[in-house]
């Protein structure tokens, strides 16, 4: 019986801690470009990323510019929205859909650097 009680309290503690962490407004990517977003926008802090040493000031990692399907070096696209180039469905101009642009950009970087979330629910945290 005693073990059960401890286990129950442990589970309760974990459950409530989840609630505790999710308190407060987090900075999220906006989902305006998506017609019917099925997940809440991914939690994303721009400041955290610019302050990360591995990225340092290379904005063009994310804010890249492609011309004729090749990366244009030393150019960046901070003034454009991602959806300006990445449409909802992949097309002849750009084979990376908007969803994949986000997913792949985030996850591949996180994998390569060995830091940052990679599981669905780690970014798309329920509101």
């Amino acid at each position: 019986m005693k073990q059960w009680k401890i286990l129950m309290m442990f589970i309760l503690a974990l459950a409530t801690s989840g609630i505790a962490f999710s308190q407060g407004e987090q900075e999220r990517l906006n989902t305006l470009a998506f017609e019917m977003p099925r997940r809440p926008g991914a939690v994303f802090s721009h400041d955290d990323h610019t302050q990360t040493t591995e990225i340092s000031d290379d904005c063009a990692i994310c804010h890249h510019v492609y011309a004729n399907k090749t990366l244009v070096p030393d150019e960046s696209s901070e003034d454009n929205a991602c959806s300006d180039c990445h449409s909802l469905q992949p097309d002849r101009k750009n084979s990376i859909s908007l969803v994949n642009a986000f997913h792949k950009r985030c996850k591949e970087c996180h994998y390569d650097l060995g830091k940052g979330p990679v599981l669905c629910g780690e970014c798309h945290i329920k509101k």
């Binding site: 589970i11 974990l14 459950a15 989840g18 599981l119 669905c120 629910g121 780690e122 945290i125 329920k126």
Partner: peptide, 13 residues
């Protein structure tokens, strides 16, 4: 459980 992100999300996934 993972969809609802109830507890221990990472481990559940």
């Amino acid at each position: 459980l993972a969809y609802h992100q109830v507890i221990l999300y990472k481990w559940i996934v």
